[in-house]
Design a protein around this nucleic acid. Structure first.
Length: 232
DNA sequence: CCATTAAAAGCCA
DNA sequence: TGGCTTTTAATGG
């Protein structure tokens, strides 16, 4: 296999405190894998044999109910680890992970996780920081689901997405991966129809702009107002 | 206010 | 063409 460049990792938080030789060690243990858009990386409950670093693309963690309903828990932007079940003391993955866009990953056998944590300074603290952030996000989302109105939930979701995966463009901030009304309804606990109507309404007001699988937030301020139930 | 159902139109492989 | 995405309208909780 081709040698991986050390600069792949040196700027990412879990590895930023490591010197060149340490990053070299880590890269030499890694394997790369590319995934097409909308494919499953691993399933909830499966043996957690690998942990991944997302080099490029976006993945989402989700749960599928027995009735086949999808509930998206969170999105993971490029540069973050995912699937590190060993960090929670689990031997199986806690959620299904799918690619939201074509993705490039590095992966390591889960058996290496304890060694990484023990050997590499900063790796553990940064990984647990990531866990904390995701836990926080999931908690606030649970609260939001129960107390906020649909319009506020969808607005907040869009704001989170542009904050985590947004790319500045001339017309506004565009969500950097393909996203459908259906995806948004899975994230907000509503229906694709309601999401469609909301987006259409916002588009008329110039707050957002959307094509199929592609949403741009033109006026984040006004979206923020909407997320607090304030009229715009 | 929001979900459900139904129907139709548009986009893309 | 067939399947997926989106919009729109009607209905009902």
């Amino acid at each position: 296999m081709k040698k991986l460049d050390e600069s792949l990792l040196s700027d990412l938080p879990p590895f930023s405190q490591l010197d060149g030789s340490q990053i070299r060690e880590i890269l030499d243990l890694a394997k790369t894998k590319r995934f097409e858009e909308n494919v499953t990386v691993f399933e909830e409950g499966a043996e957690a044999e690998r942990f991944y670093l997302l080099l490029d693309g976006t993945v989402r963690a989700l749960h599928v109910t027995p009735e086949g309903e999808h509930v998206t828990a969170l999105h993971v932007p490029a540069g973050q680890l995912f699937g590190f079940a060993a960090a929670f003391g689990r031997s199986t993955y806690p959620a299904t992970v799918e690619t939201a866009a074509e993705a490039v990953t590095l992966w390591w056998p889960m058996s290496l996780w304890p060694q990484f944590v023990a050997r590499y300074p900063g790796f553990a603290t940064e990984s647990y920081r990531t866990i904390g952030q995701r836990l926080n996000e999931m908690q606030t989302r649970v609260v939001e689901l129960s107390v906020l109105h649909v319009e506020q939930r969808v607005a907040r979701t869009l704001l989170r997405l542009i904050q985590q995966s947004g790319r500045q463009e001339d017309g506004g901030i565009v969500i950097d991966f393909p996203i459908t009304r259906r995806d948004l309804s899975d994230m907000t606990g509503t229906t694709l129809h309601t999401v469609s109507r909301l987006l259409s309404g916002w588009e008329k007001k110039g707050v957002v702009q959307s094509e199929r699988k592609h949403i741009t937030v033109c006026k984040p301020e006004r979206l923020h107002a909407l997320s607090e139930g304030r009229p715009v």
